[in-house]
Amino acid sequence: MNPRRIAISIVWIGLALMFWQGIAFVVNNNRTAPSLGNLVRESYPSFAIFGDSSSNDYREATRILAWHAFQTAKRSLWGIGVGGLSGVATGLMVFSLGRSRASAQFLLLGLMNVPLFSLIPLFVFWFSGKEFGIVLYTALAAGVLVAAATFEAASNVPLTYFWRASLEGATRVRILESVVLPAIIPELLLTFRWVLGLTWAFTLGAEYLSSSSGCGFLVYQSYLYSDVGKLLILGAVYAILGYSSIFLFDLATTRLLPQQLLTLRR
């Protein structure tokens, strides 16, 4: 991690907090614009009421937030794992179709144009808030985006790569595995990074409407009681989850993949 970037991030976070404190001072209403002090003293410990405690408790609040964040993270990871893998497989399959490729591509692009968040009520109706429904929705949303990006990336692989591979005796499957896949890895990594960020939003949307656990559920409850303080803290939790996931993703790809694949830019 670049120390300069960390310093800049800290400065920006500091400025944002000062800005908020300024707004809280001007508005002077702890319900609509709670001050930083109020967030720490009142809003944060009050998360304890979602657990066994009936009063404000820092320890219980931290446990509650961590547990719900874990539920959300678990769903997001399952969603991007299943959706990402099936998205890559679908994108490659559509790409490798012969004559029916045009119609499959049309279907894929059509799916991409469906507003994904508008599907949430449908999933609530079908799965009535079950864990499977949330993961399936997140996987579908991530999968559609990854599939479309995989197809586009594969379509941009230079023709000479295919020609060379087939002249050297590679079969269609071998070309997919030894040419297309490594050639599109730089684009796939960027797509996964982007979709990883979006997956938190997909999970939030699904939990908001249909779950009794996870950060989305807490957001919904806080919204019902117009608790801006809790909403701000949950926003911070989402920021931490999002930032951590991107950090871990970058770390894992840097460690696991050969440097040559990461630096390739056609």
Binding site: P158, V179, L261
Partner: peptide, 9 residues
Amino acid sequence: FQSNGTFPW
């Protein structure tokens, strides 16, 4: 080939 003859990875 005229270009892109090697696999860069």
